[in-house]
Simulated assay, not measured.
Amino acid sequence: MTNPLQPRPKQDGRHTPNLWPVWIVAPGALLLVGAAAFGLYHGAELLLSSESTGKKPVGVQDVIKTTVTVLTLIGAVLAALYAYRKQLLDEGTSHRADSTQLTERYTKAAEQLGHEQPAVRLAGVYAMARLADDWPEQRQVCVDVLCAYLRMPYETDTTAPAFRHGEREVRLTIIRTIRDHLQDPTTTNTWCGRNLDFTGATFDGGDFTRSNFSGGRVSFSGSTFSGGVAYFSDSTFSGGQVSFSGSTFSGAQAFFHGSTFSGGQVSFSGSTFSGGVAYFSDSTFSGGQVSLSSATFSGGEVDFTGSTGFVHF
């Protein structure tokens, strides 16, 4: 059984301050003010009478004036407390309204991403990215939705029945959007340090140039880079885990030119390079672990020209 003398329990999703019930607070405040008035009246009378011994007796009006003054101060304090409580309630209402609005924006953006028309899906990409910027508490969720879109089945053959016109532009826009949020880890709307899950995704191009993969977990495991050019040039891989394990570079070019691998773990273990080229030229490998163990090179090429540091094969 709930104890009525305890504050209301906090519920998930509620922004209302954890306050006492009004039917308890109001009578309690009245009793408190009444007791204070009674005590102040008699206390002031006794105090003034004791100080006026041998002097002119203290009049009742003086006692009443003193009592009224003190009660006025108490009333001012109570009014301030009431105003503060009202402000808390208003803030709770505002937070709930914001939460409702953000949830509605999320629902609409998700619906747009699932639309049949590519133009509407593009609008959904921008809407979800903007929502991620405006909603720090759920930013990871918004990023997860965009990454999940890239993990969905993707047909690159224009003659295949499952091919969708405009889909490539939607996917490239998602990649550019993610890249733009990985440029500067010091900005308030950065996605650096967030988990990015591209496991099993298909890439026929994409530009991650100058991205900062610092902190968090980034997974390209099992991804397929088929045709097109994937740019990771001048990127920084530091302090996190980035996995290309089991990925396939088939007829694609992947540029890691000028990138820095420091203080993190980057794995290409078990990857297959067939008919494609991965350029690591002029890259720096320091203080981290970069692994190409068990990688298969079949008609493909990996270029480390001008690179410094150690790579484990």
Rank of each mutant, 00 (worst) to 15 (best):
L78S: 04
T173N: 14
G13H: 06
A252I: 09
G306P: 03
R194G: 01
P161V: 03
D282K: 03
V120I: 14
Y154E: 11
L89N: 13
W135H: 04
Q289K: 15
G270D: 11
D303C: 02
Y82C: 02
T260A: 13
T67W: 01
F208A: 06
S50N: 12
Q265P: 05
A29E: 13
F213K: 11
V60M: 13
Q265S: 14
Q138G: 00
S238E: 13
F313E: 02
A127H: 00
G263W: 02
V218P: 04
V33D: 12
G240L: 03
N3H: 05
F213E: 05
K108I: 01
S226D: 05
W20V: 10
S271R: 00
V60W: 01
D180L: 12
G193N: 03
D204F: 01
A252T: 14
G75A: 08
M1L: 14
S291Y: 02
R179N: 13
G251E: 07
F220T: 04
T66Y: 09
F261W: 10
T296Q: 06
M1D: 13
G216I: 06
S247W: 01
F244N: 07
A252Y: 04
K10Y: 09
Y154Q: 06
E155R: 12
P57E: 12
T2G: 02
F244L: 08
T93C: 02
Q112R: 07
S281I: 03
T188G: 15
P4K: 05
D303T: 05
H95G: 09
E116S: 11
L146I: 02
I24H: 06
E169S: 12
R171W: 02
G13E: 04
G28R: 01
T103K: 12
I178Y: 05
C147E: 00
